[in-house]
Design a protein around this nucleic acid. Structure first.
Length: 317
RNA sequence: CGCGGGGUGGAGCAGUCUGGUAGCUCGACUGGCUCAUAACCAGUAGGUCAUCGGUUCGAAUCCGGUCCCCGCAA
């Protein structure tokens, strides 16, 4: 049985999916058509932005579908394609039972966690936010639940202490591309069988929301805030507020590290120690890397303080 | 036409309301001090004030157009 000769449909949306798709194509595995989410308005001018998966599909001239919902017509469309396999990676749209039953070898999902941990839509973010030291990639047979199907193959991956979202995502993509094609090969050759997940260690992750990036100085210690930054530095970023001239301002922060030591400062207070800009938390201090005020560009902490020395001693809320 | 902030020496800002030949901090360079480094002290260089046009005796500053950057909202 040759994987290259099978009819495969790919479904996915963000970079994690697009990199996997282009890797499959580069390995000579034919993709019959691609499904991705519709273009969404982005930015100040509300321009429509293509998903990363769409860009790859266009680049390789692969038939593309952007359905809002997988309705009855879509089911018929897919059924008529008679696919051997549907490969799904971070698609963001739930596949109805009718579609799951179409492909000869089923719908195979690449999920960015060591299942049954971190099911759902934000496995990479949540692994970082929780400060986990290990996560993984799972290749599974999809069923009607959210990432609940039996797993063909999974491989773990260690997370470094200071690793951020982009770095971890890149590692995840690399690992996925290494294991996916060989696993698919084994699946169509019926060399491996999927094992049901152990419901014991299950957890579910939610969609990332704007609010997730807000720093809660009263409840989060330095380590937790640093993990928040590692998880959400791409979006929605980590932000806080401070008061000046009787109005509330938003400030977006990034951190280069944290320390367990404490200083005689208020919670959330910014201060300077040698050349470092630090923030005191309920336990531990954060080393500030960049600061961005609303309406301004992102600046290194040093440049920011140079222009606004009065920011020192400000209390963030 | 969704709302708002901004573009001033290499970097970050002030100055704009109340027009009158550009200022602060950092950096760079030179010299001093020092066993030496940092620090510190003295000095030097570096700006068509995004751009185009208008008002004016005179525009970074007032008025209008254009380009670019950023936050919010979606």
């Amino acid at each position: 049985m040759e994987l290259q000769s099978k009819k495969i449909i790919f479904m996915g949306t963000p970079r994690f999916a697009s990199e996997i798709l282009s890797d499959l194509i580069k390995k000579g595995i034919g993709i019959d058509c691609v499904f991705t989410q519709p273009d969404k308005p982005v930015g100040r001018k509300a321009l429509l932005a293509a998903t990363p998966v769409k860009e790859v599909a266009l680049q390789f001239n692969i038939e593309l579908f952007q359905k809002q919902k997988l309705d009855a017509d879509t089911v018929t469309l897919i059924r008529n394609k008679k696919p051997d396999l549907i490969v799904v990676a971070a698609y963001g749209i739930i596949l109805p039972k009718e579609i799951l039953e179409i492909p000869t070898f089923g719908c195979i999902n690449v999920h960015a966690s060591f299942l049954p941990e971190l099911r759902g839509s934000s496995p990479i973010h949540t692994a970082l936010k929780q400060g986990k030291k290990k996560t993984g990639i799972s290749v599974m047979l999809m069923d009607e639940g959210i990432d609940t199907g039996p797993v063909f193959f999974k491989k773990s991956l260690s997370i470094n202490r200071k690793e951020t979202y982009l770095e971890l995502e890149s590692k995840m993509i690399k690992l996925s591309t290494e294991i996916l094609a060989p696993t698919l090969e084994k699946i169509i050759n019926k060399e491996i069988k999927p094992f049901p997940q152990d419901e014991e260690g299950k957890s579910l992750t939610k969609m990332v929301k704007k609010q997730d990036g807000k720093i809660n100085w009263q409840n989060q210690n330095a380590k937790e805030i640093f993990n928040l930054y590692r998880a959400f530095h791409v979006w929605p970023k980590t932000y806080a507020f401070f008061e000046k001239d009787n109005s509330k301002h938003k400030v977006t922060l990034t951190f280069s590290d944290y320390k367990d030591e404490n200083h005689p400062k208020e919670i959330g207070q910014v201060f300077k120690n040698k050349d470092n800009i630090l923030v005191q938390t309920i336990n531990g201090t954060l080393l500030v890397k960049t600061i961005q005020l609303e309406g301004k560009k992102e600046l290194s902490a040093k440049d920011f303080i140079n222009g606004k020395p009065a920011f020192i001693e400000t209390i963030l809320k």
